[in-house]
Nucleic acid binder design. Sequence first.
DNA 1: TAAATAGTGTCTTTAAGACATTATCGC
DNA 2: GCGATAATGTCTTAAAGACACTATTTA
Lengths: 237, 237
Amino acid sequence: MSDVTSITAVNSGGYPAPAGLTADPVVFAPRAGELCVLLVPRREPPYEGTWALPGGFMNPQEEPEETAQRKLTEKTGIGSLYLEQLATYGSPRRDPRGWIPSVAYLALTHAAVLRENETEARWFAVDELPALAFDHPRIIADGIDRLRGKLWYSNIAVTLLPERFTLAEARRLYEAISGVRYEVSNFRRTLEQSEIVRSTEEVQQGPTGRPARLYEFVEGSPSWSTRRSRIPGTLRE
Amino acid sequence: MSDVTSITAVNSGGYPAPAGLTADPVVFAPRAGELCVLLVPRREPPYEGTWALPGGFMNPQEEPEETAQRKLTEKTGIGSLYLEQLATYGSPRRDPRGWIPSVAYLALTHAAVLRENETEARWFAVDELPALAFDHPRIIADGIDRLRGKLWYSNIAVTLLPERFTLAEARRLYEAISGVRYEVSNFRRTLEQSEIVRSTEEVQQGPTGRPARLYEFVEGSPSWSTRRSRIPGTLRE
DNA sequence: TAAATAGTGTCTTTAAGACATTATCGC
DNA sequence: GCGATAATGTCTTAAAGACACTATTTA
């Protein structure tokens, strides 16, 4: 980090301004039963040779969410995703180039949307992360917490499943994201009474064993918060 | 808004930079059974004559949370509070002066910490808000949602109570914040099994009626997230 | 029929909602 | 005793955890 160019900015009122603002998408995908996060290699200082979130500088006329989406597409080729604002990281020392806060966004998608032969971006299992740039370890950790915390209070996981899916597929998906294992019977009960999936009449035959019933996603858009929270002992009146 | 001076900034790399960054504390307090938010009058454009959150511009060497705390003290005289990051509002058109994103922070305190004869800041009931500046209506609405959503998953409300308090006092506090009424018996049960309060042997006599048992806060620091969320049907192994 | 996978039944525990009842004070 | 406030008891419902059991396929 010896050859880092520092950047400063001053506004038209003569006061110091941020040298820039960045937006960082934190994109997760389950792959081979493990939760992975999307990273790109850094080819120049600072933090040359490490991996980083696929974010970048905001343009003046952009919403931060638009920047996150644009940078994601530019750096990884991945198209439009549902983004939820995660948090803002604004420590003045987080970027050695200068005062550059970052607004982080959270997304969940399929690992297959990444064309690995057309981009340098790669998926990394969250428990085997490479050396990372900036405060990205912290941002990713916060993203994992938020994703897992909302898993059962949203329908975003189900939207990753194919149009028709079995409960075993759904369970493996939830297990990959949460990092815990679920009991089959209780998993089914909970998912069914969530009313975000519906069972169909069709079944799917595997290589062996009893055929599995197929389920489908109940129409509705992907949302990071479906169920409302519980409140103790409310009076009706 | 005719005489608003617009601000721009350019960084040392020649690229446009934000004209500034602001931090806005959204401070709530229960007062007379109602949830109130802290606002200050705007004495100059833009939005002269309206009310606003007591925030302001960040200095280059500050953490955004420090800015929120500093501006709160400068503009209202209120001392150190526990702040939780709420969200960042970065629409390029949110401030008529230019590109000025804001990081909002959430806090809950006693209405009495405001010395109304030493400051222009005032409490406003959240359902009787005056004309507000910028996108502050949206920020306040998001703050209310977050505060109410976390009420039963944190111990911040209890920290507002005196050292010794009755369950009726606690219940009135929770009702003021949440805007709903609770059934006495169930309220007690829920609060007791939360393990953030403990009953003492003492009682307190009111002007009439049976004396109320006094409770105390179980040591521990104020925290916006105490209880961990439930996960369906996890296997142990 | 064995191995593999899918699905069901049900007992228990915990938390929450509803509401009736009892307790203790001042007057 | 009466009004007021505080506290308790308990029946019911809903959700979740545990775990045994049944069902349907291929080889």
